[in-house]
């Protein structure tokens, strides 16, 4: 049951920060509902929207007795998720993140959670880190790959 709950959460969640933020918002909502707990920090509007998009059956799976247990299980499963660090040359908004996440899901045909990092030296494109291995697929790496051709072209002008 907990796996189904996590899959529902991950259906349109693509980044680690999104996931943590949304889980926090969901937990806050449920605790407020079950225990009348009043949080000092209201959930961001973007997460409120996401909460509203959740199906009513999804929320019915939670009750006073299992809410803490379910969240403990989910948090322990998050650690096991395949997290890929992606370096971008700009700070993406939610829509851009969704586009990248959907494209990744389609490309690799599996669930992937991105940890977004910023590196303007890449010029454009992206670099990935998976299981501690870094691979640069950015425009910078393309320039590096075509280094000799570029240099030869430059040297033609120097002669």
């Amino acid at each position: 049951m907990n796996e189904a709950i996590l899959n529902t959460i991950l259906e349109n969640t693509y980044t680690l920060s999104q996931l943590k933020r949304r889980l926090s918002a969901l937990k806050q909502l449920l605790l407020k509902e079950f225990f009348k707990s009043d949080s000092n920090q209201p959930a961001p509007a973007i997460d409120t929207e996401w909460l509203k998009s959740l199906p009513s059956e999804f929320l019915k799976q939670f009750n006073k007795d299992n809410v803490y247990k379910i969240f403990e299980d989910i948090e322990s499963q998050i650690i096991k998720l395949p997290i890929v660090t992606i370096y971008l040359t700009f700070e993406p908004d939610e829509a851009t993140l969704s586009q990248i996440g959907q494209r990744a899901k389609k490309t690799f045909n599996k669930l992937l959670i991105f940890d977004i990092k910023y590196d303007p030296r890449l010029i454009a494109g992206a670099a990935l880190v998976c299981k501690g291995v870094y691979r640069d697929y950015s425009l910078r790496s393309k320039i590096e790959e075509k280094r000799l051709i570029i240099l030869n072209n430059f040297k033609k002008f120097l002669k």
Binding site: T96, Q99, I123, A124, G125, A126, L128, C130, V133, Y137
Partner: peptide, 30 residues
């Protein structure tokens, strides 16, 4: 970087990101 850094259209940058994902798949990196 100076010329494209902030002026590269988002679409072009996204195309390069998608290309990166495709190459990662081709390389069986992920």
């Amino acid at each position: 970087n100076t010329v494209l850094g902030k002026k590269l259209p988002l679409k072009d940058n996204m195309d390069l990101i998608y290309e990166a994902l495709d190459r990662a798949k081709t390389d069986k990196f992920i």
